[in-house]
Design a binder for these strands. Sequence first.
DNA 1: CGCTCCATTGAACAACGTCAAGCTAGGTGG
DNA 2: CCACCTAGCTTGACGTTGTTCAATGGAGCG
Lengths: 238, 238
Amino acid sequence: MIERHLARIKARHSLSKEEEQAILALIPPARPVSRNSVIVREGELLEASTLLLDGLLCRYKDLPDGKRQITQLHVAGDFADLHGFTLKRLEHDIMALTDCMLSRVPHESIRELIEAHPRLGRIYWFSTNLDACMNREWELSLGQRSAAGRLAALFCELHERLAIVGLNGERFTLGMNQSQLADALGMTSVHVNRTLRLLRDQRLLDYNRGEARILDLDGLKLMAEFDPSYLYLDAEPL
Amino acid sequence: MIERHLARIKARHSLSKEEEQAILALIPPARPVSRNSVIVREGELLEASTLLLDGLLCRYKDLPDGKRQITQLHVAGDFADLHGFTLKRLEHDIMALTDCMLSRVPHESIRELIEAHPRLGRIYWFSTNLDACMNREWELSLGQRSAAGRLAALFCELHERLAIVGLNGERFTLGMNQSQLADALGMTSVHVNRTLRLLRDQRLLDYNRGEARILDLDGLKLMAEFDPSYLYLDAEPL
DNA sequence: CGCTCCATTGAACAACGTCAAGCTAGGTGG
DNA sequence: CCACCTAGCTTGACGTTGTTCAATGGAGCG
């Protein structure tokens, strides 16, 4: 499953044999983590970053009054908290949305890797910048798109990102219930339910108990005004 | 005005004399840019990053139907597009909200700097990760806070960030009109106007033609449920 | 069988957007 | 100095989107 991480990188940058070997040597054996486990707590001091090899994670922030915003999703191949390498503590939690396989990479190893391979340092820096691009796209969604547009944009993004690591297809498992979708999209679970029905009635998307099925990808893209350029699938060489 | 950039770094990390000198040597003389100029266009190939020494910039994304989301503001001392060092092209525009002083730092110089000073490399990586923290905080605002809460949170954040570079005080110039505030907060200018009146009537904030005056900072923080930990003013050593 | 979690639905309501009209301040030209 | 011009602010009336509250239903599981 480590190939998914390599695929994620190679979708944007070429890797020499040496670089590829260095990355493979970096990654310890994965361990399973079950659905709904909190992987990283806000404020906790970190000495390693978590690579997601299988399953789905989310980052979320809570307000004192109990409101929650899911700020990002992570699919297989993603480093969930590579930003922890420089931040040392996160300002959000990270939770497993499905059963997952995780590998903990010590910051010390990352530091050695990028000192030996400065270009890999820039590639991983790129990777955290790419996360920020997705954060900004979600800001656009939350601020400007309608409820249906936000839902459509979310599924367009996931479809693209899963395809990169070979998990493409019109069906995929999200594991999120409607209440969690609501927390990601800045709406209530009741309204998520109604908007999902709307999309189903329009034969765009079917979502049932954590299982997504895309019925009409072009229709979804149109509804979302989706432009995948923020995913940098045609990145410049580093 | 270069001290503002140093102050921004030093608010989170110590700098040795050598590192400080290396940064100072990096930064070319600033040039003025007038209000409403577009500094960087989406998709444009970048060979330098822009350091903001005075004034205010914003990043924004547009949808095909004309809706605009301002995803981040930059105050004096910020690198506006350091993420361009690895991304090479941005997925958003950058525009001057006020008359500004800018310095263009070639990517080649940045690369030499961080190869000579790996710790500065990590500090600048931290800086782009900090930008992402603000993006996530804005996601939280856009998704979960009320209109008044979003406005309050924006001004709390700006007050903190300006204080870091020595521009503190209850008054400051934003230069944004109500329509631009609306684009940043995911609402309409009409609703911004009404919400500003609400905050003025509650003696929390006075905003008049681009000039902000904070009347009751604690009250604003309460209204925003503001927690400044995402600004990392107590960062761990790198 | 009963429990629990989640999805679904309806009705009332609140928040925010839309449209349109006036208003104000500051700039410009005579 | 005044007349006018324009961008942006303000306000009201009304429409739409999304929320709240509460009840019902369905699926998996011990």
